[in-house]
Amino acid sequence: MISSTPFPNPISTRQAKRYCVFLLASVLFLVLTWECLYVYKNSPDIQRSINSLAGRSPAKPFAFVTMLLASSVTADENNQPVQDWYYNATRLLVYRLSHYPETKSKFPVIVMATRGVEDWKVEQLKVDGAIVKVVDPLYAQDVVDNVNDMAVLDTRWSRMFTKLRIFEMYEYERLCFVDSDILPIRNMDEVFDVREQTSAYLSSFELLNKLRRFLDGKRFREDFSAYDLRRKDFYPYVFAAVSDPGSWHDTPPQFQDYFNAGLFVFHPSTAHYKRLMTLARFPKMYDKANMMEQSLLNFAYSSAGEFPWQPLDWTYNGVWTRKSDLAYLKNVHGKLWQEEGSMGYDPDTSSLWWRAFREMDHFYKEHYSISAWQAH
């Protein structure tokens, strides 16, 4: 006689394994489905292919953009003209992106020059092939509520918030900002192939990151009414940059959750410009503006915030370049025209910049009968 029991028969080990496999397969299927939807929604390559098949061209162009500030020193103690090395570096950047075969881009190059840059420099950059946009500079005292809350404030750095004005270039769909002291050594057009982030679609990796940040208590929330905007007004957005490895690093460097603002890809946006200008008022929120606009951008696009940044491959911004990095990098970043050793650059890295400068000088003499050393 079989006795009845109020408890069901226990699940066998084999059945339990089957249930686990089924559950894992279901989760994997859902994740892959979500990823496929995400890729379809956000992949630049797929969207370009769809537009091409449909006979549609992008509504707005892509471009590289750099910034040139008016030089604060134009003559030495003997009243002799001095070289404006940031201008020279800007010309070299334009040359490399517009003319040099190994680094020439299919995208235009914009130089955002502040009012006060000499007219002859503006005209020369146009001859070199750049689109020049002259803007009024943004001084720290015009942006920050209380400059005494800032860690550093000197003549040149006080104008670095001017970089934020590139977010006003609404006629472009996507821009890649490049510091003028960056030297392209390989083509970098693929830097634009980054995801466009929408509010509706997040990758599974980003969803897990959001959950992790929430559980860690690191996520901060913003009151969007402070900008007189709604959260959805900020989408879609793009912001991608290269992790800053620090002066001493391995090759390849380890990822740091802090980016260098010498090169980043973004989507110009009224909402994001307004947000940045609002956040900029309070430097105590972003490390007392210790690194000026870099500190602000790292705060605004923090991985713990509402609009997390996307990492670009480290090869796009060789900040603190080491000799072992050169075989991989697309760009070398640093004031390499300075005396060897003054910023920790080794001779091999510095020689790259000087060789490129001489190549540019030869190119302009041959094509325009103008020397790269020309000074007015």
Rank of each mutant, 00 (worst) to 15 (best):
R275H: 09
W373C: 05
F363C: 03
H367P: 01
P252Y: 07
V265D: 13
L24Q: 02
D119Y: 07
K163W: 04
T162R: 10
Q310N: 03
M343L: 15
H376C: 00
K60E: 12
T278G: 10
Y201D: 04
F264K: 04
L24S: 12
P283L: 06
Y235M: 02
S303A: 09
E366W: 11
K288F: 14
K163Y: 08
R115H: 10
V132S: 06
S199L: 12
S247P: 01
N187T: 07
I110H: 05
S204N: 11
E168S: 13
S105Q: 12
S324F: 04
Q47A: 05
M292L: 06
N290H: 12
V31F: 11
A327E: 14
N9I: 06
A25Y: 02
G334M: 05
S71R: 15
H99N: 11
R165F: 01
G246Q: 02
M169T: 04
Y100I: 00
P6N: 13
A300R: 04
D233L: 05
Q338N: 08
S105P: 03
S71Q: 12
T155I: 09
G116V: 00
A130C: 01
M291E: 05
R231S: 12
D313V: 03
L326R: 01
T198C: 09
V27T: 07
Y172G: 10
T66I: 05
P108D: 07
Y328M: 00
Q294V: 01
N88D: 12
M277L: 14
T321K: 06
Q256G: 02
F161T: 00
K106I: 13
P44Q: 13
F167G: 00
W314Y: 15
V143A: 08
P268D: 05
K210Q: 14
L336Q: 13
S43N: 10
L297M: 15
A372V: 03
Y201P: 00
D189C: 11
L175G: 10
Q294Y: 01
W353F: 15
A375F: 00
E171K: 13
S43M: 00
Q15R: 04
R174H: 08
D325H: 02
V194D: 08
V265E: 10
H99D: 13
H272D: 11
P137R: 05
E77V: 08
P236E: 01
